[in-house]
Simulated assay, not measured.
Amino acid sequence: MDVLSDVVAFMRTGRPISARVSWRAPWGQAFPALPGSAGFQVVLRGSCWLVPEDSEPVPLSVGDVVFLPHGNAFGLADDPARPLAEADCALHSELYASTGFDGTGAETVILSCGYRLHADRVHPILASLPGIIHLPAKLGCHPELRAAVELLAGEIDNPRLGADTVVSSLLDTLQLYILRAWFESDDEPCRLSGWAAALADPAIGRALNAIHSEPDRRWTVESLGAHAGLSRAGFARRFTELVGRPPLAYLTWWRLASAARMLRESDASVAEVAERVGYASEFAFGNAFKREYGVAPGRYRRCSAVA
């Protein structure tokens, strides 16, 4: 798996939620902060305003996407000066739903989707993102993103056999396209810093994909540097600058994050999990896991099953 695929696979817990919501002016909705969640809004018809908590309103039009990776509070309204009513979160608790609010003015249709995140699965790539990402619709830009939006909206409008699987898969696909669009953005500050620069850097990108593809391999800074086509010192310096932690520290984090997922989602024994993520002994794995998560692997699995 590559890094972005892993981010999407690891980021959510439980089922995603989605809704196609129709509003007719006048309208304004305030959505509270939801820490430990990520969501996105897509304008399918009409236009509206995004009203962030701590910045100026932003006009949205058909095809615009708003991604909120940290569950920040926000508002949507037909007019930036419109008072915002508190949103009924019960309307946004299903895998897919479609609802409308009567009014007399122009119609705006929004595709609203969200995930609950699990602290053990949140990749540091998400922490590098701003609170609100606006991807305006541009002719010819991100055609796969637009196609995924249309497919998802169609499934929610007219659910048929297999809709649960289709909607869940399309939500993951749409999330991946949103992340890809952001990290491939023409916005220069985005491209030249942090994870955007790491993913765009051919050498560091090769090293990251190697770590994600083979976490059980006995990687060293020297072997990762050779894989990236850089000297040991040059690779270590560039990796740390872009990723935010040294190569072997990131490798350890990824191994343990992968192990936590296996413990939660598979029947593999602790010894098997240890081997799959590159630990020579169950004892060494148990010590490393406890340092990271505060509990031994077996107890982590039992607590996760109860939760």
Score class of each variant (00 low, 15 high):
56 E>L: 10
81 A>S: 10
64 D>R: 08
37 S>T: 12
49 W>H: 13
47 S>I: 00
43 V>Y: 03
79 D>T: 02
43 V>K: 11
77 A>S: 14
43 V>D: 05
62 V>T: 14
42 V>C: 14
78 D>W: 02
60 L>M: 11
48 C>P: 03
70 H>A: 14
75 G>W: 00
81 A>C: 10
46 G>S: 06
43 V>E: 09
67 F>T: 05
48 C>L: 15
74 F>H: 15
78 D>G: 05
54 D>I: 01
82 R>Q: 13
57 P>H: 06
39 G>H: 06
53 E>C: 04
79 D>M: 08
75 G>Q: 05
46 G>L: 07
46 G>N: 04
80 P>D: 09
38 A>Y: 03
45 R>Y: 02
40 F>G: 06
63 G>F: 04
77 A>T: 03
82 R>C: 09
58 V>I: 12
37 S>V: 03
53 E>I: 00
41 Q>Y: 09
67 F>E: 13
55 S>R: 06
77 A>G: 05
82 R>L: 09
63 G>T: 07
61 S>Y: 02
45 R>M: 06
56 E>V: 01
73 A>S: 09
60 L>Y: 05
52 P>M: 03
46 G>I: 01
52 P>A: 07
58 V>F: 11
63 G>E: 11
39 G>T: 04
67 F>M: 14
70 H>I: 09
39 G>F: 06
56 E>Q: 08
42 V>H: 13
75 G>V: 01
60 L>S: 10
59 P>V: 03
46 G>F: 01
50 L>M: 14
58 V>R: 15
61 S>E: 06
66 V>A: 14
54 D>R: 14
68 L>E: 13
82 R>E: 12
46 G>Q: 04
61 S>P: 00
72 N>W: 05
54 D>H: 06
66 V>I: 12
50 L>C: 09
68 L>P: 06
41 Q>W: 08
72 N>Y: 11
61 S>D: 06
56 E>I: 00
40 F>S: 07
81 A>H: 12
56 E>K: 08
65 V>W: 13
72 N>K: 13
38 A>R: 11
37 S>G: 06
65 V>G: 10
78 D>K: 02
55 S>C: 04
40 F>C: 11
44 L>D: 07
73 A>K: 05
74 F>K: 13
75 G>H: 02
38 A>E: 12
69 P>C: 12
79 D>P: 01
60 L>T: 04
79 D>G: 03
71 G>V: 10
63 G>S: 11
64 D>F: 01
61 S>I: 00
58 V>T: 09
45 R>L: 10
80 P>M: 09
48 C>Q: 10
80 P>C: 08
47 S>T: 01
77 A>P: 03
50 L>P: 02
68 L>A: 15
58 V>C: 10
74 F>W: 12
68 L>Y: 13
64 D>Q: 06
57 P>G: 11
71 G>C: 15
62 V>Q: 15
82 R>F: 02
42 V>K: 14
51 V>Q: 09
42 V>T: 11
48 C>M: 12
57 P>Y: 07
74 F>R: 15
61 S>F: 03
77 A>E: 08
77 A>V: 04
76 L>A: 04
78 D>V: 00
63 G>I: 08
65 V>E: 12
43 V>P: 01
45 R>N: 05
47 S>V: 00
78 D>L: 07
44 L>T: 04
76 L>S: 03
58 V>H: 08
64 D>W: 05
63 G>N: 10
69 P>W: 11
70 H>M: 11
